[in-house]
Write a protein that binds this DNA or RNA. Structure first.
Lengths: 164, 164
DNA sequence: GTTGTAGATGCGATCATTCGCATCTGAAGC
DNA sequence: GCTTCAGATGCGAATGATCGCATCTACAAC
């Protein structure tokens, strides 16, 4: 489990305060955004609300559609930019599950990953512990902090391997 | 090192012959394509030629531009479709290094991967052996054959971590 | 509460990628 | 060589995602 708002965003100039603790619900979303030097705009709160209402693995367009129902003036670009910001902040994870569309999900629970079969399209959940060796190697060899929040690994499942 | 033409493509109906050996040059590209039930069209050979002429990490548009110099009638869609086919065949690897553009490279030598710092944009090469634990776990737990040809892992490099 | 301003938004243009469909063609069978 | 047709291509439209820039606004300072 990780903090809700993890790190500073690229262009943040002032020093970033430390991260709010994990495991809380988002009653005070606005304050959390402010606490890391981010503005709490209605558009951003709408994006977060959309995630809370809906399930996982939303596309940008699905989020935009949900928001438009309540606030028709919110722009598509803003949704994309907000998603980019939240991704950089570690609030959400971005994944390309194939099919040419990226999907997003809140990072408020255990990270998980997917094995995607490019023959039959089947998607298998993969526990996060499998990625520990990579994080460790990146840190030990290069001092690099790998932020692998929601990885999609392509390949072929056991059934399609048998088809050859 | 892996075979040049690795596996069948999704929609191949006939049984696929085995893979041609690695480590050869591409004098007989056309025959290799045919040997796995793929058509050797001039457009496809042009795409492969573009890779051989140029360096690594080409974008679809760069490939298209190179081909257009020689054959102005080749269509952009064809380049995209050819890249998709070659990716599924394991001939090339597709990677999103950030910046909203995908890049492609031939898989005729050692696979390698990248650590991409999302603060400063720095790109660090990562050896393929780091990914072995993932391949093993996917195989052992789920019988899944993970084809990780050119992975980009985002995070923060040692210098940007110190900046906080 | 007013003000100043860095940063966020709206808007439209543009770029990256995919799709549908009519046409064309590589290569297998004769 | 000729025929056949699954599969590849060209073309244009549609979708997904990003960018430039003028305007607006959240919020810090007073």
């Amino acid at each position: 489990m990780r903090g809700f708002l993890r790190s500073k965003v690229r262009v943040l100039t002032a020093s970033s305060p430390t991260i709010s603790p994990p495991d809380q619900h988002y009653d005070d979303l606005a304050n959390r955004l402010r606490s890391i030097g981010q503005r709490a705009t209605p558009q951003r709160l709408l994006v977060l609300a959309a995630f809370q209402d809906a399930g996982e693995h939303l596309t940008a367009d699905e989020i935009y559609a949900r928001i438009s129902e309540r606030s028709p003036t919110v722009n598509r670009s803003t949704v994309y930019r907000t998603l980019e910001t939240f991704r950089d902040l570690g609030v959400i994870a971005e994944t390309d599950l194939g099919g040419g569309v990226r999907r997003y999900q809140l990072l408020d629970h255990e990270r998980h990953h997917h094995l995607v079969c490019h023959d039959c399209g089947d998607i298998i959940d993969l526990d996060d512990d499998v990625l520990e060796p990579i994080r460790r190697a990146a840190a030990e060899r290069y001092g690099f902090s790998a932020e692998i929040d929601h990885l999609a690994i392509f390949g072929r499942c056991q059934f399609c391997r048998g088809d050859e």
